[in-house]
Design a protein around this nucleic acid. Structure first.
Lengths: 137, 137
DNA sequence: ATATTACATTTGTATTTACAATTGTTGTAG
DNA sequence: CTACAACAATTGTAAATACAAATGTAATAT
């Protein structure tokens, strides 16, 4: 088994999965990355997240995370404050309208995600996550 | 095991692997996608490949494959002819200078690829390829 | 207090990618 | 033969992303 094969199979899987998820988000005029940011912020359960925390959980260059969030702010789904304790940092919150959007989107994304991996059984899912985690560390 | 977890692990793996490969290609002023096209054309062993064939093996929109190849042509690594039998099609060849470039790049990419998956044993590599293939079809 | 360094984010710019529409060519039905 | 559909590739354009440099703030050393 050549390294190349393994790598290509990961790249292709990513591509397919990205296409399907993006397509399911299209009616909501939101990109996959924007959706991910909103999900991360919701995960904070009211606590602010600062930009670098969000950035770490993403797969982006920092500069583009800024602009990604600019867009979410324009759409009123996110609010940005500079942090009182450390004015270099900024605090990010998801707004009520952002939460409402996620409410609308959640189900369709969940269905899409499950459809993507529907052919995998429990063991395979566990296996792939553990192998990939292994690869990433 | 939630679908979301599986999907995120694939996305992250792809991200890491993409970063590492791109970095190793940087000294050669060539992108990963451009490198892939060259590899595909070399794989033809002298036979022409037409654009749609190349496109199918890639993870791009057709329109961008055209432009990707434009760049390789500007760099003289690829040659383009319109197909005599069917003038809608174009034939693509890798040039001698494209082959020389690949000669230079091959080793470093191979090393990078192997380094990326060095923590996986034979069984894991086989497993992951088979699971992902399963997912893609 | 001032200079220096590190930190957190932003800006500028070029390149890449997505999406829609268009061009030119071939096949085919009437 | 002509019209029309299908095919293969390209172009135009907006959005996303990569990369380098700059801004503003805080911490530290002298």
């Amino acid at each position: 088994m050549e390294a190349k094969e393994v790598i290509i199979s990961i790249i292709k899987a990513n591509c397919i999965l990205n296409d399907k998820l993006s397509a399911s988000l299209k009616p909501f005029k939101i990109s996959l990355q924007q959706f991910n940011v909103l999900r991360i912020l919701r995960g904070q359960k009211g606590l602010p997240a600062n930009l670098s925390e969000v950035h770490e959980k993403m797969v982006h260059k920092m500069s583009n995370t800024t602009r990604l969030i600019d867009k979410l702010i324009n759409k009123t789904f996110v609010k940005r404050n500079t942090c009182k304790q450390n004015r270099r940092k900024i605090e990010l919150f998801i707004t009520p309208s952002g939460l409402r959007l996620l409410d609308q989107i959640d189900l369709i994304v969940k269905i899409t995600e499950e459809k993507i991996i529907e052919k995998l059984n429990t063991k395979e899912k566990e296996k792939i996550v553990s192998i990939l985690r292994h690869l990433n560390n």
